[in-house]
């Protein structure tokens, strides 16, 4: 049997993922996390009279704290099973991907375990996010330079 023919057989025999339900779940959980973020932001702006930038930072920190807590209690992965991208894509999912390896690898010690493995999953996000921002910054600088605005 050829590989192509076998691939067809595998496709036919493998169950299809449900589509509609996961999308709805992702929508509602993702939306709810963002709404919670909006609430925290308003508290920061109105009650703590933070400026826009500080309120954004306050929101991130609060959500990251909540995510770390729920991950620690073993609840965030349950949410992840239910919501999929709904709990992966928000900043809480980023925090979960930092906290979960930290917890997982503490048995290998606090330096080479927790310390080294903490960014096992989330490291690439920083590598690509920060690199992209630096690239943008350099291009923007060149544009300003050529435009004579510097």
């Amino acid at each position: 049997m050829q590989q192509k023919e076998y691939e067809k057989l595998v496709k036919a025999k493998s169950p299809k993922s449900k589509v509609i339900l996961p999308l709805i779940k992702a929508f509602f959980v993702g939306g709810a996390i963002c709404t919670l973020g909006q609430g925290i932001r308003e508290i920061g702006e109105k009650c703590l009279s933070l400026d826009e930038q500080a309120a954004g930072c306050f929101t991130s920190v609060c959500l990251i704290f909540l995510s770390a807590l729920f991950t620690g209690l073993g609840l965030y992965d349950e949410l992840g099973k239910f919501a999929g991208a709904g709990s992966i894509v928000p900043i809480t999912g980023f925090a979960n991907s930092v906290v979960s390896p930290a917890m997982e690898f503490k048995r290998e010690g606090y330096v080479m375990g927790v310390g080294a493995k903490m960014f096992n999953v989330a490291g690439p996000v920083l590598v690509y996010g920060i690199s992209a921002s630096v690239l943008y910054g350099v291009i923007y600088w060149l544009v300003l330079l050529i435009g004579g605005k510097l």
Binding site: S67, A68, G72, M103
Partner: peptide, 20 residues
């Protein structure tokens, strides 16, 4: 802010909790 928060809370969580 976000990165440091993730590091600190991640470290704290690893002190307080274990994977189940």
């Amino acid at each position: 802010g976000g990165i440091s928060a993730a590091i600190v809370f991640g470290y704290l969580a690893s002190l307080l909790f274990s994977s189940k």
